[in-house]
């Protein structure tokens, strides 16, 4: 468990350093995600006892962190409510635009994705 927390923090740290150094708009944790994925894919071929143990630990830690992922957005969401007056008289119009555009984009993208998958007969796992 501790090893996997260390690894996840380490990859985020490297991601943040790369983001700062190259002044990228892509957030540090996303760079960390890509780096960890690349590392997992590269070492995926080998099977040593160390690798098996690390992968098992990472799976447990990831499942725990991701199982409660929505909770992690609550503090920043509260900030939005407390600062909503920023939009003043435009609030209702902006909310309507966000609501309609979001629902339409989800529907459009998922619909297109499913059609494209059916074209190629990809399975869903």
């Amino acid at each position: 468990m501790l090893e996997s927390i260390f690894l996840i923090f380490l990859f985020q740290l490297v991601g943040e350093m790369i983001q700062k150094f190259f002044e990228l708009t892509i957030p540090g944790p996303v760079i960390g995600l890509v780096l960890l994925l690349v590392a997992l894919l590269l070492f995926g071929k080998y099977s040593t006892s160390v690798k098996t143990r690390l992968e098992k630990g990472l799976t447990t830690t990831a499942e725990y962190l991701l199982g409660h992922l929505p909770l992690l957005f609550v503090p920043i969401g509260v900030g939005v409510v407390m600062h909503i007056s920023f939009l003043e008289n435009r609030l209702l119009a902006v909310l309507f635009v966000i609501f309609s555009a979001t629902v339409l984009s989800i529907g459009f993208t998922a619909f297109v994705m499913e059609k494209l998958q059916n074209l190629g007969n990809q399975n869903d796992g």
Partner: peptide, 28 residues
């Protein structure tokens, strides 16, 4: 709030586990 960063990084693990499915869906 801090845990958002590590949680984002740890998304790499389920993506890795489903990698074959992602590869077979690359074009869509």
């Amino acid at each position: 709030h801090f845990l958002l960063g590590p949680a984002t990084v740890s998304l790499a693990i389920p993506i890795y586990q489903k990698w074959a499915l992602i590869k077979s869906n690359a074009m869509p």
